[in-house]
Nucleic acid binder design. Structure first.
Length: 176
DNA sequence: GCCAACGTTGGC
DNA sequence: GCCAACGTTGGC
């Protein structure tokens, strides 16, 4: 058994939230499906984050997100890929009803309405990051060691971001 | 469009 | 429980 590479210190279990603590996240979305501009144009600048079908991503949403947490809105499969906006969680996890709808792309026949498998949260746009702050630039910033997004093969669509990384990135965006 | 990396599935 | 096959993600 080879040693687990040092580049893989996944934050799978987060410590308990302290009273009043704000947590930070990164939410991936393909702009072709729903861009940050789409969110700005949505009623109340709010949408439900439906369609997550990965257990780890679900666990972060269901077990660790709270109203008031903030998140980077990240455009994946985009040109360029990068941070397109800042948003906040405005509703904590509740069942993802799209899993119950056979007509929906994200239908999952195994998700039982009486014991839902999949959950979503509601997010509201706070401000655009315009132009997009590119992944390529994130890779050049010091102080982002261990950031999940920057690790090879990282595909998780809901990722925790440490407060230190959040501050570092916000500062880099502001100073640009 | 390519393809490496990943998560899930299912045979055994 | 192992692990090969498969489908998906997402940068490039």
């Amino acid at each position: 058994m080879a040693a687990r590479p040092a580049t893989k210190p996944l934050v799978s279990a987060l410590p308990p939230r302290k009273a009043g603590e704000v947590r930070y996240w990164l939410l991936k979305q393909e702009p072709e499906a729903f861009s940050f501009d789409d969110l700005l144009r949505a009623p109340k600048r709010t949408t439900c984050w439906d369609g997550v079908r990965n257990y780890q991503a679900r666990n972060y949403m269901r077990d660790h997100m709270a109203v008031g947490d903030q998140a980077f809105y990240y455009h994946s499969n985009a040109e360029p890929p990068g941070i397109a906006g800042i948003c906040e969680i405005v509703r904590a996890a509740y069942p993802d009803h799209t899993a119950f709808d056979p007509a929906d792309d994200h239908f999952d026949e195994r998700s039982d309405p009486d014991a839902p498998t999949w959950y979503m949260v509601d997010v509201r746009a706070l401000e655009a990051v315009d132009p997009v702050f590119p992944l390529e630039t994130l890779r050049t910033l010091p102080g982002l060691d261990g950031m999940l997004l920057l690790q090879r093969g990282s595909r998780l669509s809901v990722q925790p971001v440490t407060a230190a990384h959040w501050k570092r990135i916000r500062a880099a965006i502001a100073k640009r």
